[in-house]
Design a protein around this nucleic acid. Structure first.
Ligand SMILES: [Zn+2]
Ligand SMILES: [Zn+2]
Ligand SMILES: [Zn+2]
Ligand SMILES: [Zn+2]
Ligand SMILES: [Zn+2]
Ligand SMILES: [Zn+2]
Length: 339
DNA sequence: GAGTTTGAAACT
DNA sequence: CAGTTTCAAACTC
């Protein structure tokens, strides 16, 4: 790019005439520059070579994208009766000269760059002439501003402008959308945190519902010891709160291995209208809850405890094995097939 | 791929 | 200039 720029500058200084036809700088491209302004802006050099499918214009009018951008037509073009070929370079030059005489600046880039290009974020692109959209609201590529990713300005004659890069005398919808996204995302995070809170509360409630029966049967631990407290601020603040859903989810473990976490309700037979496990089975279950201090951990972390995994999948050194899994015959009388 | 919509370019 | 026509791209189905 630097070499291209230097070439452009040299040519500009070397040409004394106002308008002159220059040798082809890029392969397949014819080029014009004036002493007052470069015919080709940097923006055009960054643009890919266009192609056309002209039928009537013979590719020697600015209807043709190739001609309009000072390119000869290429194999990519599907034009008919094309005159914009290197073999007719003289004719192309002639047409360009005539056009330029009648319409100075016809080949100047429609996009200009403002600001300081050396300062990142300071350079600004703008449409020199502006658009005249009447129906597209500057929301489609019909609009030259939108097509070039630039905002509409007072130079534009558009009606009902809704250019997302900046409407004429209006707001940049793109910035609004970006800010709205940040706002909605923060709302989502807040909602998820509330969801964690709620789910932990549900677990507590379910445990409370189970415990009174157990206490009557076994006369064991008080039901309020661990189950009645509302989760405090420190309880649900896990980085992996998104893993807590009503359905089973696949979540990455610390080791980077993905494993399926049983759905909360499924794991605890919640909502399946089954009786709570009783006797020593429940004691073991609740003891597990206490031993691993469940209520000070997030649900996700809890579910990945080895003991819980054993209760679900079964384990050689876990008693009882597969207690929580209705699909494993662990001797209990409850569960989907129990009653 | 065919048909429609659109706005720049060309023309009067 | 403004109004109209021409044109190929952008879009829709
Ligand atoms: Zn063409
Ligand atoms: Zn072409
Ligand atoms: Zn052509
Ligand atoms: Zn527009
Ligand atoms: Zn515009
Ligand atoms: Zn606009």
């Amino acid at each position: 790019m630097d070499s291209v720029l230097s070439v452009t500058r040299v040519l500009k200084t070397q040409n004394s005439s106002c308008i002159s036809v220059l040798p082809i700088r890029q392969a397949g491209r014819w080029l014009r520059v004036s002493t007052t302004a470069p015919a080709i802006a940097m923006d055009d050099d960054e643009r890919p070579r266009p192609s056309c499918s002209c039928k009537q214009a013979r590719c020697i009018q600015r209807y043709c994208h190739c001609f309009g951008n000072q390119w000869y037509c290429s194999d990519a073009c599907r034009c008919e009766a094309c005159c914009n070929t290197e073999g007719r370079a003289a004719f192309v030059e002639e047409r360009a000269e005539i056009l330029l005489k009648n319409k100075p600046g016809a080949f100047q880039s429609k996009i200009a760059k403002d600001g300081d290009p050396s300062v990142p974020g300071k350079e600004q692109r703008r449409h020199v002439k502006g658009c005249t959209c009447r129906k597209s609201e500057c929301k489609k590529n019909y609009c030259e501003c939108f097509k070039n990713w630039v905002a509409c300005s007072e130079r534009c004659q558009c009606e009902g402008c809704a250019n997302i890069y900046g409407a004429k005398g209006g707001v940049c919808t793109r910035d609004v959308l970006r800010l709205s996204f940040v706002y909605l995302f923060s709302l989502l995070v807040s909602g998820l945190l509330l969801l964690v809170w709620f789910d932990l509360g549900c677990l507590v409630a379910e445990t409370d519902a189970i415990l009174p029966h157990a206490n009557r049967d076994s006369g064991g631990t008080s039901s309020n010891d661990g189950g009645s407290g509302t989760p405090d601020g420190s309880n649900g603040t896990s980085d992996e709160t998104a893993d807590i859903t009503d359905e089973g989810s696949v979540s990455p473990t610390e080791a980077g291995v993905t494993e399926t976490v049983p759905a909360f309700g499924e794991a605890f037979n919640i909502g399946q209208n089954v009786h709570a496990p009783g006797g020593s089975d429940l004691d073991a279950f609740f003891k597990t809850l206490q031993d691993h201090d469940y209520f000070s951990q997030s649900f996700h972390t809890f579910m990945h405890q080895g003991s819980v995994q054993d209760l679900w999948h079964g384990s050689a050194n876990s008693t009882p094995q597969g207690l929580l899994n209705p699909n494993i015959d662990n001797g209990r009388k409850d569960g989907p097939n129990g009653n």
